[in-house]
Simulated assay, not measured.
Amino acid sequence: MGRQQAGRFQKGRSGNPRGRPKGARNAATIACERLLDGQAAALTQKAIQMALSGDNVALRLCLDRICPPRKDRPTMFHLPPITSARAAADLMAAVTEAVAAGHITPGEAGEIGKLIDVYVKAYQTAELDDRIARVEQLSDAELMHIAAGGLTDAVSTQRPQKLMLLNSR
């Protein structure tokens, strides 16, 4: 079976190699369900009666079921288009200012920052895809000319400014 003499299993070998069967339920959960089976309405009514008679714990329980605490709230704000790394940095600066002014919480700012990060990555991926598509449309002669240090008119007009700066020495 894979046990050592001390009663423990050998490394890498389990006593139940197939694991827990799908759909198997915890025995304690099943026992609780059997105890409460058919009593849910009566227990709910009792909790309501206790809450109405002034039991604060029962009141909190009832209110949490009626109106559960919100995990987050909708945050409405204008999100300008992100068309460059500078625009993303400016947007993050505005989010930081909103936290400092108390308009949004630091947690909300963190979530907004994640959204901006994902958007920037998607924008960069789309921009890279566009660049690759433009290069793939070039003829072999144009590619050889670029490799030799020259630019074709089609490429020089389509290249983003930041790439032009990399080649200007």
Score class of each variant (00 low, 15 high):
residue 1 M to Y: 05
residue 2 G to C: 03
residue 3 R to Y: 04
residue 3 R to E: 07
residue 5 Q to K: 14
residue 5 Q to S: 07
residue 6 A to E: 14
residue 8 R to E: 05
residue 9 F to Y: 14
residue 9 F to P: 03
residue 15 G to Q: 02
residue 16 N to R: 05
residue 19 G to N: 10
residue 19 G to H: 08
residue 20 R to Y: 04
residue 21 P to I: 06
residue 22 K to N: 00
residue 23 G to S: 03
residue 23 G to K: 01
residue 24 A to F: 07
residue 29 T to F: 15
residue 29 T to Q: 14
residue 33 E to F: 06
residue 36 L to T: 11
residue 37 D to F: 10
residue 40 A to D: 08
residue 40 A to E: 13
residue 41 A to R: 05
residue 42 A to W: 09
residue 43 L to K: 01
residue 47 A to L: 12
residue 50 M to F: 00
residue 51 A to H: 06
residue 54 G to F: 02
residue 54 G to D: 02
residue 55 D to Y: 02
residue 56 N to Q: 14
residue 57 V to N: 08
residue 58 A to D: 09
residue 60 R to I: 00
residue 61 L to I: 07
residue 62 C to R: 08
residue 62 C to F: 04
residue 67 C to E: 15
residue 68 P to M: 04
residue 69 P to Y: 06
residue 71 K to W: 10
residue 72 D to K: 14
residue 73 R to I: 01
residue 73 R to Y: 08
residue 76 M to Q: 13
residue 76 M to D: 12
residue 77 F to A: 09
residue 78 H to K: 00
residue 79 L to R: 06
residue 82 I to V: 10
residue 85 A to V: 12
residue 85 A to K: 06
residue 86 R to D: 09
residue 88 A to F: 01
residue 90 D to E: 15
residue 90 D to C: 08
residue 93 A to G: 12
residue 94 A to C: 11
residue 95 V to P: 02
residue 95 V to A: 03
residue 98 A to N: 12
residue 99 V to E: 02
residue 100 A to E: 13
residue 100 A to I: 00
residue 102 G to W: 11
residue 102 G to Q: 10
residue 102 G to I: 12
residue 106 P to K: 15
residue 107 G to A: 15
residue 108 E to M: 01
residue 110 G to Q: 15
residue 110 G to R: 15
residue 112 I to T: 04
residue 113 G to A: 14
residue 113 G to S: 10
residue 115 L to S: 02
residue 117 D to Q: 09
residue 118 V to I: 05
residue 119 Y to C: 06
residue 120 V to L: 11
residue 120 V to W: 07
residue 121 K to E: 07
residue 121 K to V: 09
residue 123 Y to G: 03
residue 125 T to F: 09
residue 127 E to F: 09
residue 127 E to I: 03
residue 128 L to S: 08
residue 129 D to H: 15
residue 133 A to P: 07
residue 133 A to D: 10
residue 133 A to H: 13
residue 134 R to M: 13
residue 135 V to H: 12
residue 137 Q to L: 12
residue 137 Q to F: 03
residue 138 L to D: 03
residue 139 S to A: 04
residue 140 D to N: 09
residue 142 E to T: 01
residue 142 E to Y: 00
residue 143 L to Q: 04
residue 143 L to W: 03
residue 143 L to E: 04
residue 144 M to W: 08
residue 145 H to Y: 11
residue 146 I to L: 09
residue 146 I to Y: 04
residue 147 A to H: 15
residue 148 A to V: 07
residue 150 G to P: 01
residue 154 A to W: 10
residue 155 V to I: 05
residue 155 V to R: 01
residue 157 T to K: 15
residue 158 Q to L: 13
residue 158 Q to E: 10
residue 159 R to Y: 05
residue 160 P to N: 12
residue 161 Q to Y: 15
residue 161 Q to L: 06
residue 165 L to G: 11
residue 165 L to P: 05
residue 166 L to G: 12
residue 168 S to M: 01
residue 168 S to Y: 09
